[in-house]
Nucleic acid binder design. Structure first.
Length: 302
DNA sequence: ACCCAGGCGGGCG
DNA sequence: CGCCCGCATGGG
């Protein structure tokens, strides 16, 4: 893909409590369209937005991660840097977040294992598309479908030195045929994708930012293929609403096993528990519980 | 062959 | 409300 390397610039950032690897492993929407690699003392992440490609390179450890960056497409130096700061929550006060969510030995174990995992703030449309695809699916396949959609519907960026398919815009997917979407692997989600693309290209997501959590959630659920869980993911990863606590099969199992005496519990019950325990930071706690639980296979049937 | 995956919509009691 | 079912597809 690369004909010539894109230059990497200094960000001047030495991030505290920031791990590219843990963030990548957490399976946030970014990672459905990002490539991670690690070698000779540095780790890199490369991902496509609808505006261009961003490269992030880190050296050092999670307590002082020195960052460099690169960009292509419509970005300028300043815009690329701003994108990175926002996306990875570089200016977040992790000390106070950890203080707020570290309520017990289990989450404490998760935090030390995944130290530096950040909740990323992604573009709302990206997040909506990624999580509509996520339903009744697995991460590997979600990634594959997102890559296929990028290649088929994303703007092609070709600078001569470098070529890539950008993240597809809603207006581009709004015109997609159902068979074509199915050919990307979307299956029964094809009609959800097209309908959401149509509504989002007409401004469905425009006012969410100003809504309170409950109204925003029910508004998002007005999109076909968006239920409670996906709406919570969109709010958490697309709008940085840390009060959202999405409950998928993994979180459900881990919560039951580690917090609810191995009792089979309803979604409502689990949500209420999480909200009362972690309050406005439930979503941040969620990422550690979800990722740690999934990587360790906690509560898995075998 | 079977089971599962970051669920959701629709139908039923 | 809560429960149950079908759903595309690919990997273990």
């Amino acid at each position: 893909m690369h004909k010539k390397a894109i230059p990497r610039l200094r960000t001047g950032i030495s991030a505290n409590a920031f791990s590219i690897k843990s963030t990548f492993m957490s399976g946030q929407p970014l990672t459905f369209h990002a490539e991670y690699s690690k070698g000779n003392g540095k780790e890199t992440l490369e991902y496509a937005t609808s505006k261009g490609v961003i490269f992030l390179e880190g050296t050092g450890d999670e307590r002082a991660m020195s960052l460099r960056y690169g960009y292509s497409g419509a970005y300028t130096r300043a815009k690329a840097l701003k994108e990175i700061r926002l996306r990875f929550g570089i200016d977040e006060d992790m000390h106070s977040i950890y203080k707020g969510i570290e309520t017990d030995a289990f989450i404490s174990e998760a935090i030390s294992s995944l130290y530096g995992l950040r909740v990323t703030q992604n573009d709302p449309w990206e997040t909506t598309l990624c999580f509509i695809i996520s339903q009744f699916n697995n991460i590997k396949r979600i990634r594959g479908i997102v890559q296929n959609l990028r290649k088929r519907y994303g703007e092609v960026l070709n600078t001569g030195d470098y070529a890539a398919s950008l993240f597809p815009l809603p207006k581009s997917l709004a015109k997609a045929g159902l068979e074509e979407l199915s050919a990307c692997g979307a299956g029964f989600r094809s009609r959800y994708i097209r309908n959401a693309a149509i509504k989002c290209s007409e401004g469905w997501l425009d006012d969410v930012q100003g809504m309170d959590y409950e109204s925003a959630k029910s508004h998002l659920m007005g999109l076909d293929g968006v239920g409670e869980k996906v709406a919570d993911c969109i709010l958490l990863f697309g709008y940085k609403r840390y009060e959202a606590f999405p409950i998928d099969v993994w979180v459900k199992r881990v919560m039951e096993k580690r917090y609810l005496n191995s009792r089979r519990s309803s979604m409502r019950e689990i949500r209420a528990f999480a909200r009362s325990r972690w309050k406005g930071l439930a979503g941040y706690a969620h990422e550690y519980i979800y990722t740690y639980g999934r990587l360790r296979g906690i509560g898995a049937s075998k």
